[in-house]
Amino acid sequence: MLAYIARRLLATIPVMVMVAVVVFAILRLTPGDPAAIIAGDDATAEQLEKIRQSMGLDMPIHLQLLQWISRLLQGDLGVSLLSGTPVLSMIGDRMGPSLALALGTIVVTVIIAIPLGVVAAWKRGKLLDRTIMTLSVLGFSVPVFVVGYLLIYYLSIQLGLFPVQGYRPLSEGFWPFAQRLVLPVLALSGVYVALIARITRSSIIEVMGEDFIRTARAKGATERIVLLRHALRNAAVPILTVIGIGIASLISGVVVTESVFNLPGLGRLVVEAVLARDYPVIQGLILLFSFVYILINLLVDVLYPVFDPRIRY
């Protein structure tokens, strides 16, 4: 098992190198000049050239790449072209809200979606099942920002239950922190609740057709035991897979949600950096996201044997 994890971590290195090269190349190939943005509209050609030199943008591209990668290997993601702050510390500063939003969303999703899916599978074909499935279609189809603004309008502006926007770190107390997270988490969870409720339902329905379910009933087990003890645990592997994919795709949702609710997280940082062509920041963020993506996949794979003893590494 440990050997397996070590092997998988080693295998991330070539992936990360490829990501780094591709990110670097794509950024240099897209139009737009960060020096021009910094210098402003009235800068002369000489001023522009000076700024370029100071930023290292006048070097040949392959040298820029080599320089960047060699720094990367020393743990240095470079400094922002705009503010001059180290990228690593920028990411560190913005990590909090995004992490809180993502974790909150995962927890809320799992807590709501799995029971919904189990109930829908249990009441298969009945009104309750059809209601849950219809709502899940809605959850799929309505974009995050629409849900976000609707929640803000009704719950914050009309009813005044939650602050409209903003973020307070946990260090300023749990309630202010949580109060400002409720709406973003709800808005972002919608899609994932829909997705995971559906997959839970269909996985359970599939398992309910298996012979060992009949065995459980022949033992005199109640439907509750049959569903929760026998069916759900056997349905866990596909559910876990989809949760893993969901978390990975959460990143794009975070970008939108943070903009809607004005959370100073990584998602907003992405938008700001892209608009300003702040290459080192964009590169750092994409590398970070890729790494997180790989880690989540690894985590999901490592969790499989917990739910299914037939899977071994």
Binding site: E210, D211, F212, R214, T215, A216, R217, A218, K219, G220, H230, R233, N234, A236, F307, D308, P309, R310
Partner: peptide, 19 residues
């Protein structure tokens, strides 16, 4: 079930919960 009437099945491969 299981106290007065019990049952055994054809496929021992699938009649038991695999996990």
């Amino acid at each position: 079930r299981a106290t007065r009437v019990a049952m055994i099945f054809q496929e021992p491969m699938t009649a038991l919960n695999p996990v």
